[in-house]
Design a protein around this nucleic acid. Structure first.
Lengths: 328, 328
DNA sequence: AAGAACTCCGCAATCGTTTGCGGAATTGTT
DNA sequence: AACAATTCCGCAAACGATTGCGGAGTTCTT
């Protein structure tokens, strides 16, 4: 069987295509009887409008694109969930694209967005992305781009971020308040601006309070695990571990389990997290929430402002807050 | 600035639209010089073909849809990752849709797929889906549907599954081989056919070997945790815990950590899993792998067979295998 | 009763591509 | 030199919808 079209309906009913189209859209020009007939037939023939034809004609795709490194992450998936909710409520579709942290794929994804004439694009850069001109090209075409999480350094673009410095400060203060004296602080890649920001805020507070800390960097959970293992074997082991991200938390926790230390009596631990992984352990890990879900909501609000014409061209941030588990 | 079209290019160059179109597709009818001119201008004008127009004209969307309960899962995300890889290699796009386990949203997702004239659809049913006729409607329209993971009971459709019974059998045998005597077996929702299949195979083997086991059902990780907590407090606590899924594993592990039992000396644990969560713990959990990634690859192969005309209309399965951690 | 005002519908252009067909200009064949 | 074969390109029709405009028929006004 082939797809039902307006033409087919019009032929069966012996009326024009335009009338069918208007009838289905409940246009006032069409009589009630005609509308009934049309709607009924469309029903039985299982008519579904061809989205390609509609988009082509109206040049309004009602489609947003979103580029994330990977959907397999308990951060970006929350972000996407938030976007999807909003899209559903506002009658938009969402095209989800994964860059795999590969700039070439990222470039191709942007191309796909252009080819599909997205109304707007949410983008999280790969760590390797130096050149963002293909994104800025979209702005020339009046396609708003809202960057999130990993955003470009340039000022003239829309970005939404989690409050990185705040999150680190909150964690640092929590550590100080517990009178911890010897902290193992594990951060992510030195290259990332997010790392720099968090590190700066974190060390500022600990230094001011004369809390001693061992600064380490890990690119993945295995490295974090190794670092933690080694630290725990020192003669002067840390009394607290700070983890800049979920990935690092996972590695550190594995090492703690291996050393069979009990939390929080033998060692304390605190992380910056979206909230899923801290709840996996007993006791649940105390963490500073940087909510990807809220970030998604914020990004969408910003996007809608852009679409409505109110460009914001600025950095919006979602606040961080301390979620007390039992690990510190 | 507005989007570049074939028309614009043709006007600048003073040639016809058809020539531009053919030149960009490297058609033999077009002279080398013309091709050069066209390609060059298209480059500088940053031409991107309008996907809607192309799809409309060719009625070949080169687009697959995939409906999952949620991308936030270390099962479906692997599945999607596999699909995406294959799509990229075969020059297809993937439309990712989430049902949130809501049959209404599922229905709407199917509608979206139809409106966008997908070439084929990969679908995982919600547990509540009784009526699959909207899926079968797609087949009438010559749109192949490949069900995966949660598949309908009816025979006349294409399905790919993990080897449920095998996985459970392998786990049961592993338990027997370790001479375990008292097993706490936690399964998922009784309603799910996947639960029934796994349970049947599992109990068959343990019964045959006269291994005693306490059968429990948990709908989420919290319930699994409670169940485990209670079991551990009995005067005759289990020496082994079997977890039918990652979600259950998470709950059980939390309870074990709470009870401060060491693995595997004080208690053994084994799960059926896609492989991510077992590696989160120390020692790593022994599990039977039901690979979503392999499932995705298999589903894609099946889909391509359908698209090529070779309907398979049968159930394909990916094999399970035991991955030894240190938890049993 | 005759013009005004409505009701209701169809014509045809348009969105941006693709592609079968035909034809002018060039080249090759005897 | 006459004819055939190539080479290269344009015309125009589709794909399936939306929408401004105009017009036939009906009802309302005075």
């Amino acid at each position: 069987m082939t797809n039902t079209t307006l033409k087919k309906i019009s032929e069966v009913l012996g009326i024009s295509i335009s009338t069918v189209s208007r009838a289905l859209k409940n246009h006032p020009d069409i009589s009630t009887k005609t509308k009934q007939k049309v709607v009924e037939l469309a029903q039985t023939l299982d008519y579904e409008p061809n989205a390609n034809a509609v988009n082509l004609r109206t040049s309004n795709s009602k489609l947003f694109g979103v580029i994330v490194p990977s959907v397999s992450s308990y951060f970006y998936d929350s972000f996407i969930a938030a976007l999807e909710e909003e899209c559903r409520n506002n009658d938009y579709r969402l095209m989800i694209l994964q860059s795999g942290d590969d700039p070439d794929i990222e470039l191709n994804n942007v191309k796909l967005c252009r080819q599909n004439r997205v109304t707007g694009l949410f983008a999280c850069l790969t760590p390797q992305t130096k050149d963002v001109h293909h994104f800025l090209k979209l702005n020339e075409l009046n396609i708003p781009v809202v960057f999130f999480d990993k955003v470009p350094d340039i000022a003239s673009c829309n970005k939404v971020c989690v409050a990185d410095t705040d999150a680190a400060s909150i964690a640092a203060r929590a550590i100080r308040n517990k009178n911890k004296k010897n902290v193992l602080a594990i951060f992510g890649s030195k290259e990332l601006s997010i790392t720099k920001k968090r590190l700066e805020a974190f060390s500022k507070i600990l230094n001011k309070n004369e809390v001693n800390f061992d600064l380490q960097f890990a690119l993945n959970n295995d490295q974090a695990q190794k670092i933690t293992e080694e630290a725990l074997q020192k003669k002067n082991p840390p009394d607290t571990i700070f983890c800049m991200s979920d990935e690092i938390l996972i590695g550190a926790m594995k090492a703690i389990q291996e050393a069979n230390l009990s939390i929080p009596s033998e060692i304390g631990i605190i992380a910056i997290s979206n909230g899923f992984f801290p709840k996996l352990y007993y006791p649940e890990i105390t963490y500073v929430e940087t909510s990807a879900y809220k970030l998604g909501k914020l990004a969408f609000t910003g996007m809608m402002a852009c679409v409505a014409g109110t460009h914001f061209t600025q950095e919006l941030t979602v606040q961080s807050l301390l979620i007390e588990g039992g690990s510190l």
